[in-house]
Amino acid sequence: MAEQVALSRTQVCGILREELFQGDAFHQSDTHIFIIMGASGDLAKKKIYPTIWWLFRDGLLPENTFIVGYARSRLTVADIRKQSEPFFKATPEEKLKLEDFFARNSYVAGQYDDAASYQRLNSHMNALHLGSQANRLFYLALPPTVYEAVTKNIHESCMSQIGWNRIIVEKPFGRDLQSSDRLSNHISSLFREDQIYRIDHYLGKEMVQNLMVLRFANRIFGPIWNRDNIACVILTFKEPFGTEGRGGYFDEFGIIRDVMQNHLLQMLCLVAMEKPASTNSDDVRDEKVKVLKCISEVQANNVVLGQYVGNPDGEGEATKGYLDDPTVPRGSTTATFAAVVLYVENERWDGVPFILRCGKALNERKAEVRLQFHDVAGDIFHQQCKRNELVIRVQPNEAVYTKMMTKKPGMFFNPEESELDLTYGNRYKNVKLPDAYERLILDVFCGSQMHFVRSDELREAWRIFTPLLHQIELEKPKPIPYIYGSRGPTEADELMKRVGFQYEGTYKWVNP
């Protein structure tokens, strides 16, 4: 592979701008107003304001973009700056750019259920340069409990009458099928589907988006991507930290609602779906819905739930269990780990287990898709061969690698495990991989909904998990304890083995 010439960040961002501006969906010269509902909250200060700053800094926003914060707290732009700027990672050389960014910011205080507050917000936006005809993007960085009041008031008082209007809704989209349907029906009564952007930030990850290209742009994968060759698929999300004093919020939802029903299920769809007619948003989402419709409700015998306990040999936070978090209700049975087996009941995947695993306070930070292939028929190497695996590593250190057998150097035919490896950090030294939120917010500006969740996708996802969630809430089974920093409950490994996964433990990928 030829040595790549190092590029400056300015040059890299210039390439990104060229890609972005050559499309006809990006209205570079139009006025846009980006409204952050819930501007005083954690999500706004840690993710949304920093993301908008990065896009502005790199010249990736339309030229005439204004940012308006809205929340109940009586704040000023200076207050917003004070709480969000520490997350910007701005350099001293960017000081003038930073001043320009905050000059485009404003803030309006108001209630979430008060019509007069929204009329005041609308008047404020109209007073901005060309504000009355601007395109408006409303980001709901809010708890779902206020979605209905907020969307109703936005629709009645704050819509642009000339430009387009788009609304970005953060997960969780309800707690179960019934609450999700209620919320979807409410929002759909106010906005068209092409105006609604239900954001799952995992769909903005580079390697998640790469799944489609790997599958449908490489001839070698087509013939082997089926039940005849693939023994099982494992989708993993692991965090090495616990709730760390923020367990009160987590306890309301648990690990299945927080990660599995959305992030992991979306990745499953991209692995299992048929080739779409095109890369058009609805063509892709149509195929994802077909996959979900082929999955039956989760069966309790295919589920393992766990909850982390303190590690007596650990240090600091590792010595504390979930129930030691003062914000967690006493005696909570909320799971911090889950392993679930699903089956896609169609011709391509009949009988292939899709194993979804996620948890907190585990032994490493990792998100990946792992396809394990069947054993080689007619073994001539005296059971020395391990199964081939194709691994798409989402985070950290984005990579695609194939675990395969090669001859060990020497005189004899002794096979050993090795890999074919594409590590993004080595291959793409001159490429700026956008943060997931950067990519998705740019998608909203461009009107691309491919990486957002459609209402029928959402409904099918909740259909699969709601009976299990209701059973857990009714019966309150005690989750299996696992030690902070471990791989999780051993019962999860036993479940995976029972459905056909072979864990060798003899080879570990190392970032080159």
Results as ranks from 00 to 15, higher is better:
Phe250Ser: 02
Asp79Tyr: 06
Ile196Asn: 01
Ile230Trp: 03
Ala116Asp: 13
Pro143Cys: 04
Ser180Lys: 02
Gly41His: 00
Asp30Lys: 10
Thr51Val: 11
Lys89Gln: 14
Asn229Cys: 06
His129Leu: 12
Thr243Gln: 06
Ala39Arg: 00
Gly174Tyr: 02
Tyr139Leu: 04
Ser179Glu: 04
Phe221Ala: 09
Ser73Val: 03
Ser160Val: 05
Arg219Val: 09
Met125Arg: 02
Asn210Phe: 03
Leu177Arg: 13
Phe34Trp: 15
Arg182Tyr: 14
Phe191Ala: 10
Arg74Met: 14
Ala39Gly: 04
Leu55Asp: 05
Arg166Glu: 02
Thr51Pro: 02
Pro92His: 12
Arg227Thr: 10
Val12Met: 05
Lys97Gln: 13
Met159Glu: 12
Arg182Glu: 13
Leu98Tyr: 07
Pro223Lys: 05
Ala25Phe: 08
Arg215Thr: 00
Pro240Arg: 11
Ala44Asp: 00
Pro92Glu: 08
Pro50Lys: 07
Tyr147Cys: 04
Lys45Ile: 10
Arg198Lys: 01
Met212Pro: 08
Leu137Tyr: 07
Phe26Glu: 12
Ala6Pro: 07
Thr91Tyr: 12
Ser180Glu: 05
Asn105Val: 05
Ala134Asp: 15
Val12Cys: 15
Gln209Ser: 08
Ile154His: 00
Leu142Val: 08
Leu61Phe: 15
Leu128Pro: 10
His32Val: 11
Gly41Lys: 01
Ile162Trp: 13
Glu193Thr: 02
Arg9Leu: 07
Ile167Asp: 00
Ser106Asn: 11
Arg9Lys: 12
Arg9Met: 15
Arg74Asp: 15
Gly23Lys: 15
Gly69Cys: 08
Tyr118Asp: 02
Gly131Ala: 14
Leu20Phe: 13
Gly23Leu: 08
Cys13Arg: 13
Tyr147Gly: 03
Asp194Thr: 09
Leu16Asn: 15
Gln111Leu: 12
Ala115Cys: 11
His129Gly: 13
Gln111Arg: 10
Pro50Asn: 09
Ser179Asn: 06
Thr145Leu: 05
Gly69Pro: 00
Gly163Ser: 09
His124Phe: 11
Gln195Pro: 02
Leu177Trp: 07
Gly163Cys: 13
Phe102Gln: 04
Asn226Thr: 02
His186Glu: 08
His155Met: 14
Glu63Pro: 14
Leu55Tyr: 04
Leu211Ser: 01
Val169Leu: 14
Glu206Phe: 10
Leu177Ala: 14
Pro92Thr: 12
Asp181Ala: 05
Thr31Cys: 09
Tyr70Ala: 11
Ile224Gly: 08
Ile154Met: 13
Gly38Met: 02
Glu148Asp: 13
Asn64Ser: 12
Gln178Met: 13
Ile255Thr: 06
Thr31Leu: 10
His124Ser: 07
Ile154Asp: 00
Ile80Arg: 03
Phe34Ser: 07
Ile67Pro: 02
Asn218Pro: 00
Lys95His: 09
Pro92Lys: 08
Arg166Cys: 02
Pro92Trp: 10
Thr145Ile: 04
Ala103Glu: 11
Tyr112Met: 04
Ile255His: 03
Asp79Phe: 10
Tyr70Phe: 13
Lys97Phe: 13
Gly41Glu: 01
His155Asp: 10
Arg120Thr: 14
Pro86His: 10
Phe56Ser: 04
His155Ala: 14
Lys238Tyr: 01
Glu94Trp: 04
Ile224Leu: 11
Pro62Asp: 07
Glu18Phe: 15
Ser157Met: 08
Tyr202Thr: 01
Gln22Glu: 12
Phe56Leu: 02
Arg192Gln: 13
Phe26Met: 15
Asn153Cys: 13
Glu193Ala: 03
Phe102Leu: 09
Ile187Leu: 13
Val68His: 01
Val68Pro: 00
Ser8Asp: 15
Gly248Pro: 04
Arg246Tyr: 02
Lys152Glu: 12
Asp176Gln: 01
Gly222Met: 11
Asp251Gly: 08
Thr236Lys: 03
Asp228Lys: 05
Asp200Met: 00
Arg192Thr: 14
Gly245Thr: 07
Ala39Trp: 00
Gly23Glu: 14
Val208Cys: 14
Lys238Cys: 06
Lys171Trp: 00
Cys158His: 08
Asp251Leu: 02
Phe241His: 10
Leu98Thr: 05
Tyr249Lys: 00
Met159Trp: 11
Asp194Phe: 09
Asp100Asn: 12
Ala141Met: 05
Val77Cys: 13
Cys232Ile: 03
Met37Ile: 12
Lys82Asp: 13
Glu239Asn: 01
Phe173Asp: 03
Arg257Leu: 04
Lys238Val: 04
Phe237Tyr: 04
Glu156Lys: 13
Leu140Asp: 01
Lys82Gln: 11
Lys47Leu: 02
Gly131Phe: 11
Asp228Tyr: 09
Ser157Phe: 14
Phe173Val: 03
His32Ile: 14
Thr10Tyr: 08
Leu203Cys: 04
Tyr49Ile: 06
Phe87His: 08
Val233Phe: 03
Asp176Cys: 08
Glu239Phe: 02
Gly222Thr: 10
Pro144Phe: 03
Phe216Gly: 00
Ile220Glu: 01
Arg215Gln: 02
Ser84Thr: 09
Ser132Asn: 12
Ile35Leu: 11
Phe88Thr: 13
Asn153Gly: 15
Arg246Leu: 03
His186Gly: 06
Glu85Val: 10
Tyr118Gln: 06
Thr243Val: 15
His27Ser: 08
Arg104Phe: 13
Arg57Leu: 14
Glu239Gly: 03
Gly23Tyr: 04
Gln161Trp: 12
Pro62Asn: 10
Asn185Cys: 09
Leu177Gly: 10
Cys232Arg: 05
Arg136Val: 11
Asn122Ala: 15
Thr91Cys: 14
Tyr112Gln: 06
Trp53Tyr: 12
Arg175His: 14
His155Tyr: 13
Phe101Asp: 01
Lys152Arg: 15
Thr243Asp: 04
Arg9Asn: 13
Gln83Trp: 04
Ile220His: 01
Gly163Ala: 13
Asp100Arg: 08
Asn165Trp: 04
Asp24Leu: 05
Phe253Gly: 01
Val12Phe: 15
Asn185Ser: 12
Gly41Leu: 00
Gly131Leu: 13
Trp164Gly: 06
Pro62Arg: 07
Glu85Cys: 08
Lys95Glu: 11
Ser84Cys: 05
Arg219Pro: 07
Arg120Tyr: 14
Pro172Ser: 04
Phe237Lys: 03
Thr51Ser: 10
Ile196Ala: 04
Glu93Arg: 09
Tyr112Cys: 08
Glu156Ile: 12
Arg136Cys: 07
Gly23Asp: 11
Gln161Ile: 13
Phe173Pro: 03
Ile220Cys: 14
Ile199Phe: 10
Trp164Ala: 06
Trp164Lys: 08
Phe26Arg: 14
